[in-house]
């Protein structure tokens, strides 16, 4: 039987954008990206790469699933072109990622996966680049009642199930699990491959489906967290620049200054 995989991906403002491109509006409690493009959240790209490697090794069918609003076609086409087989979008004006907490997001995604399934393997990024929560992947698995392994640096489908290398602070551990299962993927897996241009064009003809909020039977008023305040970070300091005719001279001054100020 063909291995059916679903990779959950989130569209976010490019997290590598400079700090000035994230405008914090304290009134509306929203972050508005300025002049940076939307991208697939980087860890979700790593999850897709993990799925592609499994497909290369043992075959399989990859559905890319995303939930939200204001989707960029170009972003998803490029992701599809790396070797995914089908796109499934849950799109709606009320599906504002900044208004949904992890609990609501995971319930919506779990409902979509259940409706669209069955799936043997669900892959997500370890955390989204906007909310930085790291809950949705494990939450989906808990709601579906299947095993889940977090922080994967390598994912293999082997005889009888799954073999995952899970990142630890000082190394990794090997975890084996039966399927169906969910894995959250870390960047150690490696970057998502770059699709060739013709593949991006061809991706337009890949199957695309959509689900509406009404199809999922999840109440959007179910958030467990309430955002009460949003503020810009206070991280800027006054920097003393070391002057010198050459980097060497400045380096010597820097060393002496650190000792003088008792930093060392």
């Amino acid at each position: 039987m063909e291995l059916r995989m679903v990779v959950c991906v989130k569209q976010v403002p490019d997290p590598d954008g400079p700090p000035s491109s994230f405008q914090v509006n304290q009134e509306t409690k929203r972050v508005t990206p300025q002049g940076i493009p939307p991208v697939i959240s980087p860890f979700d790209e790593n999850a897709l790469e993990a799925a592609l490697r499994i497909k290369e090794a043992v075959g399989g069918y990859i559905t890319l699933l995303s939930l939200g609003r204001g989707f960029s076609k170009a972003v998803f086409l490029k992701a599809m072109a790396t070797g995914a087989d089908r796109l499934l979008l849950v799109e709606g004006n009320s599906l504002d990622p900044q208004a949904l907490d992890s609990w609501s997001t995971a319930r919506l995604l779990a409902a979509a996966i259940k409706r669209d399934g069955p799936y043997q393997l669900i892959l997500t990024g370890r955390q989204a680049a906007d909310t930085n929560a790291g809950q949705v992947g494990l939450g989906i698995a808990q709601l579906l009642g299947i095993p889940s392994i977090s922080l994967a640096q390598k994912v293999e489908v082997v005889e009888g199930g799954l073999r995952v290398e899970r990142v630890l602070p000082d190394g990794y551990e090997i975890v084996e699990s039966p399927l169906p299962a969910l894995v959250t993927v870390s960047h150690e897996v490696g970057e998502l491959r770059y699709p060739p241009l013709p593949a991006i064009k061809a991706a337009r003809s890949l199957p695309q489906d959509s689900l509406r909020l009404e199809d999922l039977g999840v109440n959007l008023l179910g958030n467990l967290l309430q955002l009460t305040r949003l503020a810009p970070p206070s991280r800027e300091r006054t920097c003393v620049l070391m002057e010198g005719e050459s980097p060497e001279e400045a380096a010597e001054k820097l060393a002496l200054r650190l000792l003088e100020d008792k930093v060392l």
């Binding site: 994230f22 972050v31 680049a129 009460t228 305040r229 949003l230 970070p233």
Partner: peptide
């Protein structure tokens, strides 16, 4: 959140 570009306060 947003990679440290904003600090959110939750109840």
């Amino acid at each position: 959140i947003f990679g440290g570009n904003a600090i959110a306060s939750f109840a």
